[in-house]
Amino acid sequence: MQSSQAPSEGVILDDIDARPGSTASLLRTFIGLYLRRLDGWISASDLVRFAGRLGIPPAQARTGFTRLKQKGLLLAAREGGIGYRLNPAAIPMLERGDRRIFDVRQMAIGDPWCLLSFSIPETRRDLRHRLRRRLQWIGCGMVSPALWICPGYLQDEVEDILAELDARESATLFRTQTPQVAGSLATAVAGWWDLTALRAEHELFQESIVALPDAVSEPFAAYVRLIDAWRVLPYRDPGLPAQLLPPDWPGQRSFDAHARLSAQLAAPAWDFVRATVGLSAD
């Protein structure tokens, strides 16, 4: 195997800026879903073919592949033909994503919380910005600019972020059962998280599934677009206790819709991928 590009060093591979439904996001979703199951390599022609089933023209798809190489997700690799190999450095990020996307967790009243306090000097304000951005991305709430909170089950992800940013020595983590606040905990939660924006993301997801391709004739396109629309939500929404959220909170409807459609589409979508690349049955 010959690769024209070495694995990226020190690059955060999570393309969190890709807008769901965009070329970059759809290709990223396809790669996350299937490239590991295809032994990490796919021919350029097959990748263009799959992109076409997602409504992406060939020239636009090739530009997308180039951008994913630049992000460090793909490596150009000739293995019996021109193609792409998954960057080994991206696998931990994809595995973390799998746990979030396919194993949705819900916090209950009485479960532990994790608090993160950090002190980063003004000379490293770029690090402060990146840390806050990453904490917000995984669903943490902001108590104050240097104090963040999340369900206890996200502590490992917080630790990973601190390690990746080389910020562990600047931070202290605490575990607590119930934060003691002046008013109600529900009111505090509404201040720590932007529930209005989070509600809008749930509503956008629910609107997007109405426009999915036909599940019978296009299960592959329907499934990839479903996961593409969904995969941001389990990060943005940390799974806060229902008792601390507004009574008409749309989260459960989103979770139920994703679970129902995934159960319907995942197997026929994989059958299509396997048949397209000529892979024998598992």
Rank of each mutant, 00 (worst) to 15 (best):
W113R: 04
A167E: 05
R274Y: 05
T23R: 02
Q70A: 15
P112M: 14
R253M: 13
P7Y: 07
G141K: 06
W137L: 07
L226Q: 01
C150K: 05
V224T: 10
R199Y: 07
N87G: 03
V181K: 02
R199D: 11
G55H: 09
G80L: 14
V277H: 03
L240A: 05
R62W: 07
R175W: 13
V232R: 02
T66W: 12
L75A: 05
E79T: 08
L135C: 12
Y84G: 09
L86A: 09
P234T: 05
L73T: 10
P112N: 15
W148E: 04
A24V: 13
R85P: 05
Q155N: 09
P58Y: 04
I12N: 12
G278Y: 13
P250G: 13
V224R: 00
E218P: 01
V143A: 15
R260S: 15
S43G: 08
D98H: 12
P151E: 01
D15W: 03
C140V: 11
D237E: 15
G83V: 13
D248W: 08
G191Q: 11
G152A: 07
Q155R: 12
S3M: 04
L131M: 08
G40K: 06
T176G: 14
G251Y: 10
G10H: 08
V104H: 15
D160K: 09
L244F: 06
D156Q: 14
L35Y: 00
R49H: 05
E79W: 11
G141A: 03
R67W: 11
R67L: 13
L68C: 07
L173H: 03
L245W: 01
A281D: 13
L154Q: 08
R125Y: 08
V104D: 06
G141E: 08
L73N: 10
I209C: 11
P219R: 05
L244W: 11
R49V: 08
R100P: 01
P219I: 07
A90C: 07
M93P: 04
W137E: 11
G183P: 09
V277C: 05
R105K: 15
A222G: 04
D256Y: 09
A76R: 15
L13T: 06
R134H: 13
I161N: 05
